[in-house]
Design a binder for these strands. Structure first.
Lengths: 125, 125
DNA sequence: GACGATACCTATTGGTTTGAGGTATGTCCA
DNA sequence: TGGACATACCTCAAACCAATAGGTATCGTC
């Protein structure tokens, strides 16, 4: 009908191929509030050294999430050192649930595609 | 020490948080050779509409993989239209196996972290 | 002959991650 | 005393990838 453009270029895709750090941060912080430095190591440990997001990745991410309202932050002092402790807000929990759902979708979709290869041996070459 | 210090930014981390398109392309093409346009739709279909990588993502990726030697390409003509059919090389199969292994690692690590939340209810407040 | 589908392509933009820096305090111990 | 190291925060520049948006050309059909 209208001036063509039936090719809906809109973004239905999970832009979640990168956002793994975000999901992990939201999850770990929802398990227990932490400060940045702690979180960096918690990710490393909880993933069995598989995931190693540096501080240069985590700190900006925390700031972004806090600014977006998914995290609240509170500065405390412990032995002369100052820490910024982050906690997941209600909004953050919703966001987390959404991110998690998208991640699951991607994982299962990719999984199905990869599985597909296993039974494809009958393809006569 | 010396002057230049070519700021070499090497990546030790699984830079595989993004590379999903690459893995999917290698997998689908190893199931059966395809041309770009076909592949774009095959991804969409095989993933149940979950993954929708546009042509602007797939074509450059195919070129990159071909240049890297993971894919071989062959141009054919069908009814006046020309298609470039891609096929996974031996090198590409090795690359695929590696990518797949890394992906599995990431998936299971993230999975373990997400699972962790389910049994964390006993965390004494 | 306009339109939509097929089939290829590239360039620009935008968001993420990386790597490398920088500041400052506390602890250990020689 | 001071050096090394861990803790704890931060930011910037480069690199990377994917998304978007363009562009060309052929074919079938209405």
């Amino acid at each position: 009908m209208s001036t063509s453009f039936a090719t809906s270029k809109r973004r239905t895709n999970p832009d979640f191929l990168n956002g793994v750090p975000e999901l992990v941060v939201l999850e770990l912080l929802s398990q227990r509030p932490m400060y940045g430095y702690e979180l960096v190591q918690a990710i490393k440990e909880a993933s069995g050294e598989t995931l190693e997001f540096g501080e240069g990745c985590i700190y900006p991410l925390l700031h972004k999430l806090a600014e977006r309202g998914d995290l609240s932050s509170r500065r405390i002092d412990v032995g002369g050192r100052s820490r910024v402790v982050y906690r997941v807000t209600t909004k953050g929990h919703k966001q987390k649930a959404q991110s998690q759902a998208q991640w699951s979708q991607v994982v299962s979709s990719v999984g199905r595609i990869l599985q597909g290869g296993k039974y494809e041996h009958a393809k006569t070459a």
